[in-house]
């Protein structure tokens, strides 16, 4: 029984880890800047493609772990740069949430169109890290080490962010400007709001780019993968609550595990189950399991 339960958890790990990163990338922006922005899904797509093509170009089909880490770092920095650029050139002109939703979702269309122009729609894969890190056996279940690596990296990053937000003075400035605090008051106290916004966009971009890059060796970089990622991340934010790190982790685990269980036990519900959970959460706890009530 224990082994059975563990099996579902282990099978869900890749989805869990990328959804943690992606959903927090989204909810961080919403929490600190009060901005709805769907561009993160486009960054996810570009992160995946950049990781794969850089890896193929630099390493062929072999694996150098340090090299792969370096490429992941590059992909996340690229993501940060792109999201900041998108904010500076485009998103800061958007006035209301509805505008942001519609405009950034059409920006997603631009992203996938550009990906089609640059890479075509034949998927690109670089699966060496996934294949060559080997597998371990946990209580009779086989799990590729890459899953553990993904989860470890995602959790580590979340811990670092939690430390940054709650234990450093810069983190305090972020929290002061967030939905929890008061932006105008923070501004009056000398917190540079422009800088905070830019840094938030950069961090969000890092998370989204990294999510794409980390998941790419497993499923390949494919045209159209951003739509699915966007839905999973948005639902996780609904379930977990806006701006809560614990909520992001918890929601990602719930979504991932429930889908893995449904895939085997109740295939009819596999696709619908995240939506059902989100709807139920919205009815019972409108602001998410771990969230607080904000203006949104």
């Amino acid at each position: 029984m224990f082994s059975m339960g563990l099996r579902y958890i282990l099978n869900a790990l890749p989805v869990v880890s990328y959804v943690i990163l992606l959903s927090f990338s989204y909810s961080f922006l919403l929490y600190i800047c009060g901005r709805v922005s769907l561009t993160f899904a486009g960054i996810y797509l570009v992160g995946a493609y950049a990781t794969v093509s850089l890896s193929i170009a630099l390493m062929g089909n072999s694996l150098s772990f340090a090299g792969f880490m370096g490429i992941l770092l590059l992909a996340s920095l690229l993501g940060a740069a792109m999201l900041v650029a998108s904010y500076l050139c485009f998103e800061r002109f958007l006035k209301t949430d509805v505008h942001r939703m519609v405009a950034t979702s059409s920006l997603l269309l631009v992203f996938r169109g550009l990906v089609k122009v640059v890479w075509g729609t034949t998927p690109v894969t670089y699966s060496a890290p996934f294949l060559e890190l080997g597998v371990s056996e946990i209580a009779g279940n086989i799990v590729p080490n890459y899953y553990l690596f993904m989860l470890g990296l995602a959790l580590l990053l979340m811990l670092a962010l939690a430390y940054f937000l709650n234990r450093t003075s810069w983190g305090m400035r972020f929290r002061a400007s967030s939905l929890d605090g008061d932006r105008t008051m923070a501004q009056a106290c000398g917190v540079n709001q422009n800088l905070v916004t830019l840094m938030t966009f950069a961090i969000s971009g890092v998370l989204a780019g990294l999510a794409g890059g980390l998941y790419a060796p497993i499923a390949g970089a494919a045209y159209g993968s951003e739509a699915n990622a966007l839905l999973l991340a948005a639902l996780s934010v609904i379930i977990g609550g806006v701006g809560s790190i614990g909520g992001a982790v918890l929601a990602a685990f719930i979504v991932g595990i429930v889908r893995a269980v449904a895939a085997i036990k109740m295939p009819v519900l596999e696709l619908a189950v995240p939506f059902i959970i989100a709807s139920v959460t919205l009815m019972l706890r409108p602001f998410g399991i771990w969230g607080k009530e904000f203006r949104y």
Binding site: R7, Y8, L10, N11, A12, L13, P14, V15, A48, N141, I142, Y147, Y215, I218, A219, G220, A222, Y223, G224, S225, A227, N228, A229, A260, V261, A263, I264, P267, E270, L271
Partner: peptide, 21 residues
Amino acid sequence: TFFHPFGEASPNFAAYITELM
């Protein structure tokens, strides 16, 4: 016999693979 979601673009098949094994 299993039917996995069609055309998700970034699917995770681990559940089916372990079940198959």
